[in-house]
Design a protein around this nucleic acid. Structure first.
Lengths: 193, 193
DNA sequence: ATGTTATCCAACAACATGTTGACTTTTTCA
DNA sequence: TGAAAAAGTCAACATGTTGTTGGATAACAT
């Protein structure tokens, strides 16, 4: 364990941070497709060539940023393994919404009209795997296709919830949101109004 | 009424059709951002300049295609104005899923990882307007923010449902899907499994 | 048959891209 | 502290896409 857990070079941190800031700003102004590496590095006040040391293009950069969020997601599910098994969704949801809150700005742009559909699908995939795996373990193999529909509806629906939440600057607390999501999933979205 | 309702030039129809076909194919292979006008027109076997007679760029083309689908959506809501007022969602949903089925391929790519987030938001907007307007008429002005969350959840959720459906090549009938959606919205998505 | 319109073709400048090599600055670590 | 390693700067390059143009040709409507 020489330098495994060593923090990365300060310059690298600085560069990554500046690029991420610049990207977040630009994504609020225009669609991803219209963001050029040139203007991105200009806004971050660095050389254009530096960008290519880290990312292939703007979309690749977004993917990498998403990666970090999904790592956080994995960590949450690892911590709540018992809750998943016992179908205790609320504690998981609270941590999940906390993660969202920490990455508020990025989530807002990723779910915005200028956002990234792939983000939604990665989310869908993760939730599907995490939950479905435990369901299979508990109840044996599945028979019909209702599960696919259930998960697609639930995950996309939660994404919609998150979208609305971050666009209100996360006014409601994470606990409130977890309760709201849980209620919608269990009793139906109409039950909240 | 000289030539108001006259069909457009046969050449125009042909060009539009060829371009749409080519786009649909390409969107299955790669992300929108990687689709160039050059390769699009090559696949459609026509001059590059012709493309610019109709669309500003590839994203503009997608918007225009979406426009047609949303016109169909408007027509459906116009036909079911009584159902909206009486909260009879199922008949509307059936027609809605029929519309989806007609535009199966395009819906699949628009909701795919390579898809268009703006499509989701336009959908959200339309449903919000159509339904919420009647709610307001019936029940007077709204007080709290639960409606926003409800609609975001419901519309995004339905989008997830549609996504799963078109990826199964619309195996289930429109009636089945309408029932499924209605049930999820009213009794909760967990009720289907 | 005739005028109108859509498409084709070639060519153009403008721009973003991705990569390179040499140079400077910062960080690491012994 | 000093030398090696790594990160970033800068200028330059070939390449490909873009959006637009003017004139020729073909397809269409009446």
């Amino acid at each position: 364990m020489e330098k495994e857990n060593k923090k990365e070079d300060r310059r690298v941190r600085r560069t990554r941070k500046l690029l991420t800031q610049a990207l977040t700003e630009l994504m609020q102004q225009k669609q991803i497709k219209d963001i050029t590496v040139t203007e991105l590095t200009e806004k971050a006040d660095m050389n254009r060539g530096t960008f290519y040391l880290y990312y292939r293009d703007v979309f690749d950069m977004i993917d990498k940023i998403e990666d970090e969020m999904f790592n956080g997601l994995d960590r949450i599910f690892a911590q709540h393994s018992e809750d998943v098994a016992s179908n205790q969704t609320e504690p998981i949801l609270i941590d999940l919404f906390s993660l969202i809150e920490e990455n508020q700005e990025m989530c807002r742009v990723l779910l915005s009209p200028h956002g990234d559909m792939n983000f939604l699908h990665r989310l869908n995939e993760v939730m599907h795997d995490k939950f479905l795996n435990t369901w299979v373990e508990l109840r044996g193999p599945l028979k019909d296709n209702a599960f696919d529909y259930y998960y697609s509806f639930a995950v996309f629906g939660c994404a919609g919830l998150i979208h609305a939440w971050v666009n209100r600057s996360c006014k409601e607390s994470t606990e409130e949101m977890a309760k709201l999501a849980d209620r919608m999933l269990r009793r139906g979205s109409l039950s909240v109004i």
